[in-house]
Design a protein around this nucleic acid. Structure first.
Length: 930
RNA sequence: GGGCCUGUAGCUCAGUUGGUUAGAGCACUGUGUUGAUAACGCAGGGGUCACAGGUUCGAGUCCCGUCAGGCCCA
């Protein structure tokens, strides 16, 4: 017989290495084969609800790290909540309408103009659903457990109907109105363009300087004063309605010697203006700040009916021109904004094809906008207002498809008024909890400063605006009609709008006084996609029975303060007066190791699926809890490698615990807390603290605190301390004896608690361990509940005592290390330790009531009063002497003993070991040892 | 240009209401084990807390500015 056969060495088939890339997909297949998602929900049916509402990713393209972080974070929350007494469903969603999908179709060779709208939309729908399918496959590979078979998709008829109803309610409250706003307009394709459809080229333009005669100078400027403005788009002078100044810039009133008129230019641009306009000799007769000239008026260069208003805005610069900007609200975004603030109309004098309209005046009507420069100059010269003409080269937007330049042009748009209920929204923001807290400020400022919401888009792929027009052009926004449309969409989907005429869409027998002949037309614009996803509280939370409105949590990237957090809030407050969420969690963006953003051109991107294939998705999931998700997060292969080291540590520790509890049956072998050995009681208490801290961190969405606490516990408390001393107990002591069972009791609880606490983060690993726990009843670890925090009496004092003792242990380790350096000992068991203790230290040791020699892992320990110290070294207040242990080594426990052979039958073993052998391995008496 | 945010050891993070020699884990170096072994233990080196001012008896912590980086706007 071998001595080794009388030891209880750990035994498990749980592999040291996870082979994660291979085993994860197999494990996930098992989850779905057993419908683990619904299984857990069914188990929680009667529990309080916790509802995390998934923000819909856009159904286009491969998933990237941002997607992965988002879905994994949500999975962690949902899994945790389901394991802590909540019914927490997770319904994933997709955002499917919008321009990028239309662009994909174009790229694939489809021509939108060669087919009816409904046909184009069918192509878009098929494409979107294909993307949803692909992304869903990839999201599942992340280990995210959700209702993947029944996601919400914004193109689903029931979603579209719910969205129409949100619009209907807002219209009913008078929040929807029609206005005009400049958009990128391509005359060559006769349509509005999105930012993404524009490319910039350098072109040479004619820029004009001209003067505007002051009409009402408000007592500051007289009528012989002229405001000199600058424009690079001469045709827009036809729609010029104002002149914008920087409020804090200084403006000079100049009297040139060679002119009897006075002119106004920015003081900072006076010198170059003088040169440009040929003022060889001039005098500055006054200066005024822009804000002092506010609301002065000037005469339009040639249109006697137009009085231009002087306005102030911050977009004015002194980079070029004169510091006075001619303002045509119908032809520019800045112009529109400032004009709106001053109540000016957004007049448009160019038609859809780029030709001047009658409003441009008889000299220009019918001319192409780009051909009117000479006429405009001529008109200015005849009015004696022309000052200078220059050629400039600048970057100008072009239609990416026709390669022709575009213009800004106001077109009719539908708006949702934010002004009317802005204060309600702000009040609701105050009711919401934000993680991190600054999110409240950020969202608040955005809502406070934003303008009305332009909800119409001149595109095809989206939910139509359910608006009709009577014969005289009156828009019909009627609650009953909109509900009628919602019902049609619910049944047929929104393509119905494009497949049928206005008459067919209206309720049978509908009449309207504005349509004496009973004829109607329908709106052709669609809704902004943000209105789609912004309606999800109605399209999903109010539509699916397992969900609740408002939701407990929305969690997205910080770009969504402008996006989904924003649009959802507006529609929800507009309709119901409440925010759609109680908590908002926002996350930063993933950066490379140097803190720079990831981009394909820099080659610093990391694909989540590649990580899954090479290292396992558990590594990426673990990464998400090592970083501060409230700010930007660094990722690189080196960082992931570091994370995988942590994973290995976790895995190996679980493995050791498993290996040493295989012969332990918790039902029959457990030792009660009060009967545990002192060191086990201590560790039990430490574990309880861990559970407390980790649960609290989970409850407040502090995942990196979860990780830090767990990894420190595993490294410091478990691996370096408890498991290290454990080997002298668990391997050596009697297999069913009290000391061993005591420790195994704590091992087993540690193992179970760790597996559960880790599960939301590492579900694959947790489930793998679970397969090695035959005494647990749940078929999956995920069906178990989180460990509860116990109220252990006297825990605080116990921890304080041991905390003190650990300082002694540190000192002992240093002493032993010194002895090792001096080649007095090799391993700790070769040492005989002598402590010379103060009264206080002695009291501490006694109060522990513990086997101190065992915990310090030496073969022999002696304790004497400090005043008897001899050959002792002071290690941080502890007097310690290390000597070589006396006696000889037992081949079985490898410790030094002075009583080897006390039992003559076993000359190489100590008395204690001999007793264990006689009781548990009596065959050794016959066989002897090799 | 504006709103919001970030910047502590090579890496990822802690640093409570400003108060003793700034901490942890990983990595690194040395070393011990070889009964957690493509593992484990012990010890050690490593930081002018982005930079420059200011408030204070005292600042990683508060204030101002600069630089670098990020999200969203213009």
């Amino acid at each position: 017989m071998k001595y080794k056969d009388t030891l209880n060495l750990g035994k498990t088939k749980f592999p040291m290495r996870g082979s994660l890339p291979k085993t994860e997909p197999e494990r996930q297949a098992k989850w779905y084969a057993n419908d683990l998602y619904h299984e857990r929900l069914t188990q929680n049916e009667t529990k309080p609800h916790f509802n995390l509402h998934d923000g819909p990713p856009y159904a286009n393209g491969n998933i990237h790290l941002g997607h992965a972080l988002n879905k994994i974070s949500k999975d962690i929350i949902v899994r945790y909540k389901n394991m802590t007494g909540f019914y927490a469903p997770y319904v994933p969603g997709w955002d499917t309408h919008g321009l990028p999908i239309e662009q994909q179709l174009t790229k694939a060779g489809h021509d939108r103009k060669s087919m009816p709208k409904y046909a184009w939309r069918n192509l878009a729908r098929d494409f979107a659903l294909e993307q949803v399918k692909k992304q869903r496959q990839d999201f599942k590979r992340l280990g995210v457990l959700a209702d993947w078979d029944k996601p919400y998709i914004t193109l689903q008829p029931e979603f579209e109907a719910a969205q129409i109803r949100v619009f209907g309610d807002m219209a009913d409250k008078g929040y929807i109105f029609k206005g005009a706003k400049p958009v990128y307009w391509s005359w060559s394709s006769e349509s509005a363009l999105a930012e993404a459809e524009i490319e910039y080229h350098d072109i040479e333009s004619t820029s004009l300087f001209y003067a505007n005669r002051v009409k009402d100078g408000k007592g500051i400027l007289d009528n012989n004063t002229y405001l000199i403005v600058w424009t690079t788009t001469p045709f827009t002078i036809t729609a010029s309605r104002g002149i914008t100044l920087g409020p804090d810039f200084e403006y000079a009133v100049v009297q040139p010697a060679n002119d009897d008129r006075k002119f106004v230019v920015a003081a900072g641009l006076l010198a170059e203006s003088a040169e440009r306009f040929g003022w060889n000799d001039y005098e500055v007769v006054a200066t005024h700040l822009g804000k002092e000239l506010d609301r002065i008026t000037a005469q339009h260069p040639w249109d006697q009916n137009v009085e231009e208003l002087v306005m102030n805005a911050d977009h004015v610069t002194l980079d070029s021109g004169t510091g006075l900007v001619h303002t045509a609200p119908g032809f520019g975004e800045d112009d529109y904004n400032v004009g709106k603030a001053y109540g000016l109309p957004a007049d448009v004098t160019v038609d859809a094809k780029g030709f001047m309209t009658s409003e441009a005046g008889p000299d220009l009507e019918g001319k192409f906008y780009d051909d009117v420069v000479d006429i405009v100059i001529d008109k200015l010269k005849r009015a004696n207002l022309w000052m200078a003409t220059e050629k400039i080269t600048h970057s100008y937007p072009f239609d990416w498809r026709t390669k022709k330049p575009i213009i800004w042009r106001a077109v009719p748009q539908w708006f949702a008024s934010v002004d009317q209920f802005r204060q309600d929204i702000l009040d609701q923001i105050d009711q919401v909890n934000f993680y991190p807290e600054w999110g409240k400020k950020r969202l608040y400022n955005m809502i406070r400063d934003r303008g009305d919401w332009v909800i119409s888009r001149q595109r095809v792929w989206g939910v139509p605006l359910p608006i009709f027009y009577a014969e005289d052009g009156t828009a019909i926004l009627d609650r009953d009609i909109i509900e009628h449309i919602a019902q049609l969409f619910e049944k047929h989907g929104s393509n119905y709008w494009f497949e049928h005429s206005a008459q067919e869409l209206l309720p049978e027998g509908y009449t309207n006084e504005h349509s004496p002949n009973g004829e109607f037309t329908k709106e052709e614009d669609i809704m902004d996609v943000w209105f789609d996803s912004g309606s999800s509280w109605n399209g999903v939370l109010n539509t699916r029975s397992e969900l609740d409105y408002p939701a407990d949590v929305y969690l997205e990237g910080s770009d969504q303060y402008r996006g989904w957090f924003n649009s959802s809030l507006i529609t929800s407050v507009a309709v119901n007066g409440v925010a759609p969420y109680k908590n908002v969690i926002s996350q930063g963006f993933t950066m490379d190791q140097n803190g720079n953003k990831m981009s394909k051109s820099l080659g610093n991107t990391i694909s989540p699926l590649e990580v899954a294939d090479k290292m396992g998705i558990e590594i990426l999931r673990l990464w998400t809890v090592t970083v501060d998700t409230s700010a930007d997060m660094p990722v690189s292969n080196d960082i992931l490698k570091q994370v995988s080291e942590s994973y290995r540590k976790i895995r190996n520790t679980l493995r050791f615990l498993l290996a040493n509890t295989t012969d332990f049956n918790p039902e029959t072998d457990s030792v009660a807390y009060d009967d545990l050995a002192a060191h086990d009681q201590y560790f039990y208490t430490l574990l309880n603290e861990l559970v407390k801290d980790v649960r609290q961190a989970y409850d407040t969405y502090q995942f990196k605190a979860v990780f830090n606490r767990l990894i420190n516990f595993i490294n410091v408390d478990l691996s370096a301390f408890y498991l290290d001393i454990a080997k002298d107990v668990v391997y050596v002591e009697a297999p069913t004896g009290h000391v061993r069972r005591s420790m195994q009791t704590v091992f087993y609880k540690t193992l179970l608690d760790l597996v559960k606490l880790l599960l939301p983060i590492l579900p694959h690993t947790a489930e793998e361990v679970w397969e090695y726990l035959p005494h647990e009843n749940e078929a999956f670890a995920y069906l178990a509940d989180m460990p509860e925090v116990e109220n252990l009496t006297g825990a605080e004092e116990l921890l304080a005592r041991w905390h003190q003792f650990m300082k002694l242990r540190d000192s002992v380790n240093k002493a032993l290390e010194q002895a090792r350096v001096n080649e007095l000992i090799g391993k700790n068991s070769e040492a005989a330790l002598t402590l010379f203790v103060t009264d206080e230290q002695e009291a501490l040791l006694n109060s522990l009531n513990a086997d101190v020699r065992l915990i310090l892992m030496t073969s022999q320990l002696h304790v004497y009063p400090a005043n008897q110290a001899e050959n002792a070294t002071d290690y941080d207040g502890f007097l310690i002497n290390v000597a070589h242990a006396k006696g000889a080594v037992s081949p079985r426990d490898r410790m030094y003993h002075e009583d080897l052979g006390a039992d003559p039958a076993f000359p190489e073993l100590s008395k204690h070991e001999a007793e264990i052998i006689r009781e548990f391995y009596p065959e050794a008496l016959e066989e002897g040892f090799e």
